[in-house]
């Protein structure tokens, strides 16, 4: 039976499922009770408002009733809804997801509230500017075979402030990166960083785009035409670039990009390989409205984990035939 078999994984976390399911049902029934009470409060307040309006002949009564109804509903919401869902999701991560990860890869550790630090994110050099707002969660780290790996969800944003002709200042936040940020040991020695970025210029402008790429400097052209269409490679050392990006590594990156999408960025730097995998959905989360032991939910989480873990195999990072241990 494969380690990625969903039933096998569910067996491994069977002991936790009952506890989580009890908590989940508690939270849902409390929310249902809260919804009922909120409805009563709003209807009651509106009814009183209508009566006051009829007696006094002024619409102020109805307005007051509406306001009172909304305030009352908010109080009821806070009491019954509170942070029940967040509490369940946190429990799910510790009780279910971390054990699921251990069952699949015993050498991996899951720390839901932590993530790849901003310093590490910046150190990769995958994005040109340091973010102004940074958040991360769901750190998974440890050894996959001989390779040390860490990855987490990251949301990095940049602040843009503009002033219009009347002197009014407005601020907007632009996402620099949202998705999974991955770092692993690389099995070869190298000195200079090598970046493998999506080839936007060539894809959009063809021959002219190719010429434009040269302006960025340190451009390295690889032999595979398919790889060249997908990526633009930059590195100061032409020989090192080819030492890292062997024809087989180029093929592997082509496959990786097909699987993970055309926004994937890769950099080889400081004995590591770093990947930024854009992703708009929130991964590694439990769904309050699905039973804790739901097979489809477990399959989804297993798929997300496998998607990250298999990068090591896809890039053949466990092969140790070169001089680096």
């Amino acid at each position: 039976m494969s380690k990625w078999d969903v039933d096998r994984a569910l067996d491994a976390v069977a002991a936790e499922i009952d506890t989580l399911e009890r908590v989940r049902r508690d939270v849902i029934s409390k929310r249902a009770e809260g919804t009922k009470r909120m409805t009563f409060v709003i209807l009651g307040a509106v009814l009183i408002g209508v009566l006051v309006m009829l007696v006094s002949g002024s619409p102020v009564g109805l307005l007051a009733g509406l306001v009172a109804g909304v305030i009352g509903a908010l109080i009821v919401h806070q009491i019954y809804f509170g942070n029940g869902a967040a509490r369940y999701r946190a429990m799910f991560k510790v009780g279910f997801l971390s054990k699921l990860i251990r069952a699949v890869e015993p050498e991996m550790t899951y720390v839901p509230e932590q993530g790849i630090s901003e310093a590490v994110f910046n150190e990769s050099g995958l994005f040109s500017s340091d973010p102004d707002r940074y958040s991360c969660e769901d750190l998974i780290h440890g050894m996959l075979g001989d390779t040390k790996v860490m990855f987490s969800e990251v949301h990095a944003e940049e602040k843009h402030t503009s002033t219009d002709s009347k002197g009014n200042t407005s601020t907007r936040w632009e996402t620099v990166f949202l998705g999974v940020f991955f770092r692993a040991d690389f099995h070869k020695e190298f000195r200079t960083p090598l970046s493998v970025m999506p080839d936007v210029a060539e894809r959009h402008f063809g021959w002219f785009g190719k010429k434009l790429q040269k302006l960025g400097g340190n451009l390295q052209k690889m032999e595979s035409p398919e790889f060249e269409k997908m990526f633009v490679v930059r590195g100061a050392d032409a020989i090192e670039a080819r030492y890292i990006l062997t024809p087989s590594m180029q093929e592997r990156l082509i496959d990786l990009r097909r699987r993970l999408g055309d926004g994937v960025r890769v950099v080889f730097r400081d004995s590591h390989v770093w990947l930024a995998i854009p992703n708009k959905t929130n991964w590694f989360e439990g769904d309050l409205f699905k039973p804790a032991g739901d097979r489809s939910q477990a399959a989804l989480l297993m798929g997300q984990l496998q998607s990250c873990f298999q990068i090591v195999e896809e890039l053949d990072l466990n092969t140790r035939i070169w001089t680096k241990e």
Binding site: K188, Q220, K221, E223, A238, I239, E240, A241, R242, Y243, T246, W322
Partner: peptide, 13 residues
């Protein structure tokens, strides 16, 4: 590996 990389770099140049 280094010889192969150097040859490929040479061919590219």
């Amino acid at each position: 590996s280094q010889i192969s990389a150097s040859r490929r770099a040479f061919n590219s140049a």
